[in-house]
Simulated assay, not measured.
Amino acid sequence: MTDENNRVHLTGRVSGVPESKVLPSGDEVVSFRLVVRRSAAARRRSKQVVDTIECSVWRAALRRSVLRLEPGSAVTVAGALRRRFVSGGAGVMSFVSVDVDTCRKVSATAVASDP
């Protein structure tokens, strides 16, 4: 049984080259940012037209696939939202990212159209 309460589906463009990191635990993760266009209704409330979402890929086969994506690639991802914490010079900060379960390339027109 899967928990569908925390499930997101996003379509957008990869903003840069995906990066692979080995964590102190020995786990490997590939991260990339997805630029997602806001809906027309959301753009009426804000001047911001896109959101940039951090995405993390943990499964080995999917990591290899995502590492081949190029900046500007149009993709659809599905996964779960996660709140992450990082410490730095300004103290502990948190942000939300998507733990990606699936990622597939789509046509550029899929990204350009408003929902």
Rank of each mutant, 00 (worst) to 15 (best):
W58T: 02
S97M: 10
S31L: 13
K21S: 04
L23P: 09
T76N: 02
R64L: 12
R38K: 03
R83P: 01
V66P: 13
R63D: 10
S25D: 12
G91R: 04
P18K: 11
P115G: 14
R43V: 10
V111C: 10
R43K: 06
V49Y: 06
R7W: 05
L81C: 02
R104S: 05
E4V: 15
A78E: 03
E19M: 11
T76E: 04
A61E: 04
V66F: 01
D51C: 10
G89W: 10
S39K: 13
V36G: 03
G79M: 03
M1E: 05
R68S: 09
V30R: 13
S94W: 08
F32G: 05
D101L: 12
G89Y: 04
V106K: 06
R37V: 02
S107V: 15
I53M: 07
V92N: 09
A80F: 11
R68Q: 08
V8L: 13
S31P: 11
K105S: 12
D101W: 04
A74W: 05
K21W: 02
R43H: 03
A74K: 11
S107P: 06
V36D: 11
V75Q: 07
S107G: 15
D27I: 10
M93L: 05
V49E: 14
F95W: 06
A80C: 07
D3P: 07
A108Y: 12
E4I: 15
G88D: 07
S97A: 11
V111R: 08
V22D: 01
L69G: 04
D3M: 13
A74R: 12
D27W: 05
T76L: 06
V17M: 00
P24H: 02
I53H: 05
S31T: 15
R13T: 01
A110V: 09
V30S: 04
M93Q: 11
S107H: 14
H9D: 00
N6V: 14
E70K: 00
W58G: 05
H9Y: 00
D27F: 12
S15E: 12
S73G: 09
L81W: 08
T109C: 07
R43S: 03
